[in-house]
Computed example of a mutant assay.
Amino acid sequence: MLTADPSAAADHRALRQAVRIAEPPEALRRLRAMSADVRLKVVDMIDRARMGHIGGDLSVTDILVTLFGAVLDVDPEHPDAPGRDRFILSKGHCAAALYATLARCGYFPEAALATFMAPHSPLNGHPNRRKVPGVETNTGPLGHGFPVAVGCALGARLRGDHARTVVVLGDGELQEGSNWEAAMTGGHQRLARLYAVVDRNRLQQGARTEDTVRLDPLAEKFAAFGWEVRETDGHDHAALLAAFAPSTTGQPVAVIADTVKGKGVSFIEDRVEWHHKVPDPAQVRAAIEELTR
Rank of each mutant, 00 (worst) to 15 (best):
L15W: 12
R16K: 15
R16C: 13
Q17K: 09
A18F: 01
A18L: 15
V19L: 10
I21E: 14
A22F: 01
A22W: 01
E23G: 05
P25L: 07
P25G: 09
E26F: 03
R29L: 07
R30E: 14
L31S: 07
L31A: 08
R32M: 04
R32H: 14
A33Y: 01
A33S: 15
M34R: 14
M34V: 02
S35N: 10
S35R: 12
A36S: 15
D37N: 11
V38F: 07
V38M: 07
V38S: 05
V38K: 02
R39A: 07
L40V: 07
K41M: 02
K41D: 10
V42P: 01
V42H: 05
D44Q: 15
M45E: 01
I46T: 07
D47W: 00
D47K: 00
R48N: 09
A49R: 01
A49G: 04
A49S: 10
A49W: 01
R50M: 10
M51A: 15
H53V: 08
H53Q: 07
H53P: 04
I54R: 05
G55N: 10
G56A: 13
D57W: 03
D57V: 05
L58N: 06
S59T: 05
S59M: 05
S59A: 14
T61G: 08
D62S: 11
D62Q: 09
D62K: 03
I63H: 09
I63F: 12
L64T: 07
L64R: 10
V65A: 04
F68A: 00
F68P: 01
A70C: 14
V71S: 11
V71Q: 14
L72H: 08
L72E: 02
D73C: 08
V74E: 02
V74S: 06
D75A: 10
D75F: 10
P76R: 13
P76F: 04
E77W: 02
E77R: 14
H78E: 15
H78W: 13
P79Y: 04
P79A: 12
P79N: 12
D80H: 14
D80N: 14
A81I: 11
G83W: 13
G83A: 12
R84C: 11
D85Y: 11
D85K: 09
F87I: 07
I88Y: 08
I88E: 04
I88R: 11
S90L: 14
S90N: 15
S90I: 15
G92T: 09
H93P: 03
H93K: 03
C94E: 03
C94K: 00
C94G: 09
A97V: 05
A97T: 06
A97F: 05
A97M: 06
L98V: 13
Y99S: 00
Y99V: 00
A100W: 02
T101D: 00
L102V: 09
A103Q: 10
G106V: 03
Y107R: 02
F108I: 04
P109R: 10
P109N: 08
E110G: 11
E110M: 01
A111P: 01
A111R: 15
A112W: 15
T115F: 05
T115R: 09
T115C: 06
F116M: 07
M117W: 00
A118R: 11
A118L: 05
P119D: 11
